[in-house]
């Protein structure tokens, strides 16, 4: 059928024309830079000899051996993983609790629902600034209240102390204070995102199952555990992977809160330091590549285990 053939060809030509602006921008601003980064990672490039650095230079593995050989990189990678897992789980857990609490209507729910999105919508610079002022040991409200009402002996330097020992049931436990604070911030800022997805799904769930279970005399916890939660699992899986990707690559939140100090130097911040302070572009590129590679491996493993679990059940 030659006629339909030309029509189809016309259609696909039009489609390419329509999508070309998008492709062009993504090509220039994303794909080419990624390829260029790969090339830079294998060359000795500093800010000084940047102008001579072309696409074809002297390729070697020096940057990678520097990166893998430094202990700073490994601890930074570990911090990134802890930070990402903590923030992802934290934001989804709070989001789930919030979605369950706001599931049934009550007076003022609409307003509260909107207010709950504030941390997510507000600019990150403003949010981090409020947090760092509130947590400030000299004039922050948290420490002012903590020492006045909660009987803290002295102000707690939430964002500037790496290790903090707390007495827990008579035992002194050392906790990575600044890292925990940063994770708490991230969970606070992104729980609205999980909340939105979860409450949308919750309200679309059919009510019959729940009603049948009520007739059967099940407890509220049983109904949540065996009826509601399994139906939410697909959304939770989606949220986990989205939040994991975005948090793993995160730069601004930690940078603005601690500047990467006090044991919170995630890889993104390390790359930034190499790029600006040390002007070692090659090593910066190599580290950012390793970051992307590690993320890819995590996602592949996650998808495989999640996929395998989906097949068996």
């Amino acid at each position: 059928m030659p006629r339909t053939d030309t029509l189809a060809r016309q259609e696909s030509r039009l489609a390419y024309r329509l999508i070309s602006p998008t492709l062009l921008i993504v090509l220039v601003v994303v794909v080419l830079p990624v390829i260029w980064t790969i090339s830079l990672a294998f060359q000795d490039v500093r800010l000084i000899n940047l102008r001579d650095a072309g696409f074809f230079g002297e390729y070697n593995l020096d940057n990678f051996s520097t990166v893998f050989g430094s202990s700073g990189f490994w601890s930074s990678l570990w911090i990134t993983v802890v930070y990402t897992v903590g923030a992802t789980l934290g934001s989804i857990a709070i989001g789930l609790v919030a979605a369950l609490a706001l599931r049934r209507p009550f007076r003022g729910r609409g307003l509260l629902r909107a207010a709950m999105l504030l941390p997510y919508v507000a600019p990150v610079v403003a949010a981090t600034f409020v947090w760092s002022v509130a947590l400030n040991p000299q004039f922050g409200i948290v420490n002012a209240w903590g020492t006045r009402f909660l009987g803290w002996d002295e102000p707690v330097p939430f964002l500037s102390q790496r290790d903090y020992s707390v007495g827990l049931f008579g035992v002194d436990v050392t906790v990575p204070l600044a890292l925990l604070t940063v994770i708490a911030f991230e969970a606070w800022r992104y729980f609205p995102f999980a909340f939105l997805f979860l409450i949308a799904r919750l309200q679309a769930l059919p009510g019959e199952l729940d009603e049948a279970a009520v007739v059967d005399g099940t407890s509220i916890w049983q109904r949540f555990r065996h009826i509601t939660l399994p139906q939410l699992m697909p959304v939770i899986a989606l949220l986990t992977i989205l939040r994991f990707i975005f948090t793993f690559n995160k730069f601004d939140d930690v940078y603005l809160l601690t500047g990467g100090g006090a044991g919170t130097e995630v890889v993104s911040i390390r790359v930034y330091e190499f790029l600006t302070a040390r002007t070692d572009i090659g090593a910066a590129a190599a580290q950012s590549l390793v970051l992307a590679a590690v993320l890819t491996v995590f996602i592949a493993v996650y998808l495989r285990t999640a996929g395998a679990r989906g097949e068996t059940s």
Partner: peptide, 24 residues
Amino acid sequence: ALFLVVYLFPPILLAIPLFVLFSQ
């Protein structure tokens, strides 16, 4: 795939070449 390409790579990775390109 477009989605993945843009969001999988850390923005800081794009920042390096874009920094160089825009400087030049």
